[in-house]
Amino acid sequence: MAEKITPVLETKKLGISFGGLHAVQDFNIQIYSGELVGLIGPNGAGKTTVFNLLTGVYVPTEGTVLLDGVPLNGKKTHQFVEAGIARTFQNIRLFNDMTVLENVKAACTKDIHYNLLDATFRTSKFWRAEKASTDRCMELLAICHLEDKADLLASSLPYGQQRKLEIARALATNMKVLLLDEPAAGMNPTETAELLSCINTIRDRFGVAILLIEHDMSLVMNVCERIQVIDYGQTIASGLPEEIAKNPKVIAAYLGE
């Protein structure tokens, strides 16, 4: 992959400690536009903590997150999203009492420009903005093969589709970097294959960078261009999938010595 000058997402010496526990230490990663990077590690290694640092849920105790070279220090979660980092969750977090379409539209809020008066008087600006947002969200749902489920309640979807809806919702934020936290967890092989094609479509179509946490090794080895491995909050290896598969430290971390 041709290296550009600034990575879209970069972290420098990122770390967080909860009291005496160093959950993540000295985490450095560079992701370039259009790249698909895997983040793996044994249970409790700190993968999700890294995601929480990258999305502003946790405030790092050291280091910085840079998006397009701009540091995001001191920003809140929704500002991270506005800057262009979107995520999905390991345990599905949908807006259960809203329809599938509303779930996606809710994530468009920052791009819907009308004020309270427009909403109260139902001005043409209101209708145009709502229509544009609906059209866009329907497109995103189509990418995730959910367009015919638009009017169902999110909670009524089967598990695999709920996962996809989370991805569609993340896409609606117009992100530059997409963080997927175990998107294939609990999916059967067919669903995983579908998800894979969905992820590839997203990357080709939007040219976004994707960082993926996954336990399904076949998925990680198949799709990721680079892999970073962490254990006990520290990076133990990073490189191409084949290198990682042979790396003795990684094998030791997963299987024990």
């Binding site: 809140k76 999203v81 969750f89 977090r93 949908l94 809710a106 809020t109 934020t173």
Partner: peptide, 13 residues
């Protein structure tokens, strides 16, 4: 109401 964390992660202030 449905999920505060997800709402924030969807760019809602």
């Amino acid at each position: 109401r449905d999920n505060e964390i997800a709402a924030a992660a969807s760019g809602i202030n």
